[in-house]
């Protein structure tokens, strides 16, 4: 990790988000650097998923700014759509397009959004599907795949856009335990290749192995952060200790 540049990739500034009377994010600041893998942990309802979704504006923060590569993302549709092309997202429930084949799912983004020719998109898609180990499934529909396969297709779909950063929203939480490994393996490879990643997960083993930085969130704030060793082995905050004692 010595080669990591100090270029900032994502910067969140004082992000506030509430749903009705419920304050979910209380002015969160976060900077993610290029090539960094940041893992967000915390109890349910702590705001980790919401924070992740505020990055690509799937949730609109009431206050605060998002910077990508140091440029503030303007709050209009056009700017947001442009930003989303560079920020890939993987969802807990995969959200594959059920009416399209695996290949159709993967090429949809670049063909529709970037206007890339279908032929070219298919070539890239096949390389990426090979990488996630699903090239042989390219003509199947999502309903024929297992959860782990679906999630790997979803990762391929996001990667096909050639994003600068990938957001993972509990990517293994909806999977049967024996299928989690395949998905995590793909994510580990991505991290090794230097992809910038922000991951919300309950997979502490993954966090420990892959994360450059672990953030512990509670009640809409980042309570504690640091290397996995520091946060997992020597947490300083009581709430972090209480959370870790419950799950480890």
């Amino acid at each position: 990790m010595t080669k990591r540049s100090i270029q900032e990739m994502i910067r969140l500034e004082r992000i506030y988000k509430s749903f009705g009377k419920l304050n979910v994010l209380n002015g969160v600041d976060l900077t993610v650097y290029e090539g960094e893998v940041v893992v967000l942990i915390g109890p349910s309802g702590s705001g980790k998923s919401t924070l992740l979704r505020c990055i690509n504006f799937l949730e609109r923060a009431q206050k605060g700014e998002v910077y990508i590569h140091g440029n503030r993302v303007k709050k209009n549709e056009k700017a947001i759509n442009e930003m989303r092309q560079r920020v890939g997202m993987v969802f807990q429930h995969f959200n594959l397009f059920p009416h399209m084949t695996v290949l159709g799912n993967v090429v949809e983004g670049p063909v529709q959004v970037k206007g890339i020719s279908k032929k070219e998109a298919i070539e890239t898609a096949e390389t990426i599907l090979e990488k996630v180990g699903l090239l042989d499934k390219k003509d199947q529909y999502p309903s024929m795949l297992s959860g782990g396969q679906k999630q790997r297709v979803a990762i391929a779909r996001a990667l096909e856009m050639k994003p600068d950063v990938m957001l993972f929203d509990e990517p293994t939480s909806a999977l049967d335990p024996e299928l989690v490994g395949d998905v995590l393996e793909v994510m580990k490879n991505l991290a090794r290749e230097g992809m910038t990643m922000v991951v919300v997960t309950h997979e502490m083993g993954f966090a420990r192995e892959v994360a450059d930085r672990v953030l512990f969130m509670d009640e809409g704030n980042i309570i504690e952060e640091g290397t996995p060793e520091k946060v997992f082995d020597n947490p300083t905050e009581l709430r972090t200790k209480a959370f870790l004692s419950k799950i480890l």
């Binding site: 442009e82 989303r84 997202m89 429930h93 059920p98 949809e108 983004g109 959004v113």
Partner: peptide, 30 residues
Amino acid sequence: VDIGQQEAARSLGMTKAQAFRRIVFPQAFK
């Protein structure tokens, strides 16, 4: 049609109209 479909489409950078035409409506039509 599950809201996640719309979100997945939009997260790729599709406009609302594209997401409707390509993703939501074909499923709804079925």
